[in-house]
Every structure is written in structure tokens, then in C-alpha cells.
Design a protein around this nucleic acid. Structure first.
Lengths: 111, 111
DNA sequence: ACATTCAGTGAGTTGACACTAACGTAAGGG
DNA sequence: CCCTTACGTTAGTGTCAACTCACTGAATGT
């Protein structure tokens, strides 16, 4: 369960609507955690912090320390990688081998 | 929980690796549930059946009855719709308003 | 009619995850 | 030095999803 496949991690992260909103906030602007959390009245900073951790582990955002603050920004390169995977998924066949390899690896971890 | 947004449902369905494998199996070929389940030695037919239900609720596959069998096939149109949403997500701005509307609607349902 | 095959469904268990609340920590300011 | 700011982290809780097992139901074969 340590280190999910990058594609899994990214898709799972994006499946959560709140994380999509967070990601959109830092899509073009670099923002500190406090400003991000301030946009949500219905969840605590802690929850936002945990969402940011998930996004960071999926490499969808990058973190930069500036004194006591931490500035987050979307990683467009990682998003491009996911987009590329999905494009090859729709269009079909080339991706087949790689995904089978991924699932085989997942099997090894299970048994 | 009442009718998730289509995008949510699709992303959530795709976040599960096993469902991606199933979806790939019926990507070009129409297959009965038994043949789909037969490809997985580590889960029961019941589990596969439930995965198929999730995919069907996300409209990612279509179901066709043929006597006692049920034949499944990927719905490319729905996948195209998701792809379009994601494309507009990366490229940014047009989608902003619609997604905010979605999250607002989600808020209404919660409180 | 009876058994068989293919499939969905319900109960119940396990595990993952989103969340809150409380605590811990590192950097400056007074 | 406190104290505040701006974070992360941990414990604990409620909820939901994936799974197995057992059952039911519909179509078909004999």
C-alpha cells in the first residue's frame, strides 16, 4: 500500500471534489495554506492541510517554504502526465501492456 | 449521496484500478459478466458484479440483456464527456464557473 | 416439472478516508 | 523569554466502499 501507482494516486486525489477546488485555487497562483483554508467555511484548516498532503503525495502540487508559511502551487507537469495517460487510455491499445504490468505489480504486493 | 455529479462519479469509478481493468476489457468488445469475472482469480463474481454496477451508475458502461446473460460494453461517449471536462480543467478558465456551481449545489445538499 | 446456469441482491465484516479537536513545533515580534 | 502566527500531527469518530458468503430470481436444458 506504500506508494500507490502515480496514476492511481492522481485519480484518487482528483475524485474528491474539495481537492479539485483546492487544486484550482493554486492552479495559476501560489498560495499559503492559510489563504486556501480561508475560502472554506465548512471545514477546518486541519482538513485542508490533510487535503494538501494528499495532493502533494500525488505530486499534483508542489510545496515551497517561506519562513513559517508554506506556499502551494499546482504542478502542471504532473497533470500533463496524467492527461497523457488518460488520452492513451481512451485511444486504446498502446497503454494496455503498461497497465497490465501495473496490475501485476499490485498483485505481487497482495499475496 | 443522492446522485453524485457525473464527473465525480466517473472519476471515482476510474480511481479504482480493478474497475479500469474491467473497463478496458469491455472497451472494444462486448462481454458477458461471467467472462469478465473469469479474468480475475482473486475476487468473486459478486465483487465484479458490484464493480460493474458502479461503472454502470457512472454511465461508463452500458448493459444489454441477452436471455439470461448481460452484456457490457464501454460507453465511449461518456468517456469523451469526461475527457472534455478534464481538458477544460487543465486549460483553465472557462470551466471555473460551472465547477463552482457544482460545489455550491453540493453544499446545498449537505446542510 | 426439475435441475442447471448466469446473474443480481442483502447481510455482515473489514478497512480506508474525511473530518474534528487537541496538541506539538518552528519562526519572528515585543 | 513569552506569545503569537502558521503550520503539521495524532487520536478518535462517523461514514462509506470493497469484499465474501449465502440467497434469490430468471432463462434454459432435459
Amino acid at each position: 500500500m506504500l506508494t500507490l501507482s502515480p496514476v492511481d494516486a492522481a485519480l484518487k486525489a482528483l475524485a474528491e471534489p474539495r481537492r479539485r477546488e483546492i487544486l484550482r485555487l493554486v492552479w495559476n497562483d501560489e498560495l499559503p495554506a492559510a489563504q486556501i483554508a480561508a475560502r472554506f467555511h465548512d471545514v477546518t484548516r486541519s482538513a485542508v492541510s490533510q487535503h494538501l498532503a494528499v495532493l502533494r503525495e500525488a505530486a499534483l502540487v508542489t510545496e515551497r517554504r517561506d519562513g513559517t508559511r508554506r506556499l502551494y502551487r499546482a504542478d502542471h507537469a504532473q497533470m500533463d502526465r496524467l492527461r497523457q495517460f488518460l488520452d492513451e487510455y481512451w485511444t486504446g491499445s498502446l497503454q494496455r501492456l503498461q497497465d497490465l504490468a501495473e496490475s501485476a505489480e499490485r498483485e505481487k504486493g497482495k499475496h
